[in-house]
Design a binder for these strands. Structure first.
Lengths: 124, 124
DNA sequence: GTAGTATTTTGCCATTAGGCTAATTATCCA
DNA sequence: TGGATAATTAGCCTAATGGCAAAATACTAC
């Protein structure tokens, strides 16, 4: 029972983290945090086609991060932040760890910057 | 300049969220939160081969979530929680949203349970 | 009905991800 | 030196992802 709940949470985290791993989708969420928007409106800032946007929205919807409405020929999207709370809870479990091993965030970011300059476009 | 920093953060978030989207990798981090471990030790709970584990560890390392040492023929892993703090900061930006639209987490979890019963496909 | 706008569906393609086995490298120990 | 153990690399397979164009669907407005 606790196992079952854990498994469901696990699935949910898979879907949520996976959805959040794309910058376009994170930008979509950022936009929706300021209010509902249609697919067209969401597409505007991005150089991708409508079908691609539809796919992104499906990913977000399957993860429970957005829900959709129906008004005439528009399918407005709105943010559903609940899965994010779950992520927050998951991450919180590691807070002690990073407080223990880390300095200020600024230092960490500087380190990222430096790394970036060394080998820019890392891939294998 | 702020743009560059933002882009780097974005890349970092891509890598981090992507790394976290796999339950095996999340379990690895959970294990490492209790202390260093070798690849062998990390592999034990999972039904995957050593090469697969090596791949997972590479993903985590590229995301900066772990670092590795060298002791004789062992390459011990340890948790680097810094990227998680970044995730925490990112998620926090949505806190107002979920507090506004959501009830208690328990209700949300119940809803997940119910959905799951409808079209099941999960293991224990 | 016809035209126009919004969105999704359908195929297709290239890339990536996660798994495996077999082979290779690194290190210890007798 | 040679055997044992730890870990990685190389190569292969399959499924999933993100992009596209073209076609289909849904709705409005004339």
């Amino acid at each position: 029972m606790a196992n079952r709940a854990a498994a469901i949470l696990d699935d949910q985290l898979n879907a949520t983290f996976s959805a959040l791993s794309d910058p376009t989708r994170r930008a979509i969420l950022a936009r929706l945090a300021r209010g509902e928007a249609t697919v067209k409106e969401l597409s505007e800032p991005f150089p991708i086609t409508a079908p691609s946007m539809t796919k992104h929205l499906k990913v977000l919807e399957r993860a429970g991060l957005i829900s959709r409405g129906k008004q005439a020929q528009w399918r407005p999207c709105r943010l559903e932040a609940a899965p994010l709370q779950e992520v927050a809870l998951w991450v919180e479990a590691y807070r002690a760890n990073w407080q223990q091993t880390m300095g200020r965030l600024d230092d960490y970011l500087s380190k990222l910057e430096k790394n970036k300059h060394g080998h820019d476009k890392k891939q294998s």
